[in-house]
Amino acid sequence: MNNILTVSPSPHAHGKETTQKLMFGVVIALLPALFSSIFYFGYGAVIVTVSSVLSCLIFEFLIQRFIFRKPITITDGSALVTGLLLAFNVPSNLPVFIVVIGSFVAIAIAKMTFGGLGNNPFNPALVGRVFMLISFPVQMTSWPVPAGLNTGYTDAVTGATPLAIIKEGLKNGESLSQLVTQIPTPAQMFLGNMGGSLGEVAAAALLIGFVFLLIRRIITWHIPVSVLGSIFIFTLILWLINPEKYADPLFHLLAGGVLLGAIFMATDYVTSPMNPKSMLIYGIGIGIITVIIRVWGAYPEGVSFAILIMNAFVPLMNAYIKPKRFGEEVKNG
């Protein structure tokens, strides 16, 4: 019996989950949407995605190596997820230099200045995206029309997103029944055959990813369901008031980045609340702000802003909204 024994406090067993596995789970869940966007937008989608992922990884590596001088953790997959999500949020014909600038803002400013993974208050990919949207409004809002695998990169035909069509049309005094011919049918939108950011168009592919995330227990249902539910209810009320002025709920759910935002962006671990009660409030907040921006705001799309705004409330919610602890209220029966 000469073994020197190891001693540590309990528990002596650990589950199989690791940060890396969770992050790669998210990456797997994003793959269907990636494939469908390559299918619709061709080379452009590949170029933008690869440049975004690579530059995110490189920026994270450089900062950890030369500024933090701490162990390098780019293998944990979080920069990979940020890179993918950033690419998913931009048009597929975006010049590479803008993608690189966006990645820099996402990783260096939104993530690493706060101390890296786990400390950033705002979703890095969204900060990068919003930065690009404000700095390069022209490039960021010229949406290539889906044209199949062989679409070129910069010479793609561009058009407006369904949301932009409606916003523009309503501003010009047209009614929805006049505009309906210009927007894709719900079936087309479900499959992703419309203009938009490269990852947000294919609702079907995003939902496959959602199911995977739920089965793999990477996320819980609370945030996506509350975001989608609140958008549905809010737009339903508006639509019932005046169907000529307000688009129907199904359109709002399928158009733009709602699904991508609700499933992948709002559920980002670091920037979402910790307990189910606040997750629901957070989701509902995102839904309402999104609809407000879409219907009354200056931008046709508001998911990114809505998520960033609600991100700001997360620390407050974590501090003040507490789960009901076991044994807190006495209920017998």
């Binding site: 190891t6 540590s8 002596h12 067993a13 650990h14 989950e17 690791t18 940060t19 969770l22 953790t73 944990d76 979080s78 890296g116 993974l117 786990g118 400390n119 819980t220 671990y269 670091v270 979402s272 609340p273 910790m274 307990n275 507490k322 789960p323 009901k324 602890r325 076991f326 044994g327």
Partner: peptide
């Protein structure tokens, strides 16, 4: 199996809250 896993940053995944039978954070 005797050692501990390497400690990394909290990613705020809330799995500890989900796992707690007493709903503690």
């Amino acid at each position: 199996e005797s050692g501990r896993m390497e400690i990394s940053r909290c990613i705020r995944c809330a799995k500890c809250i989900e796992a707690c039978a007493l709903n503690l954070e």
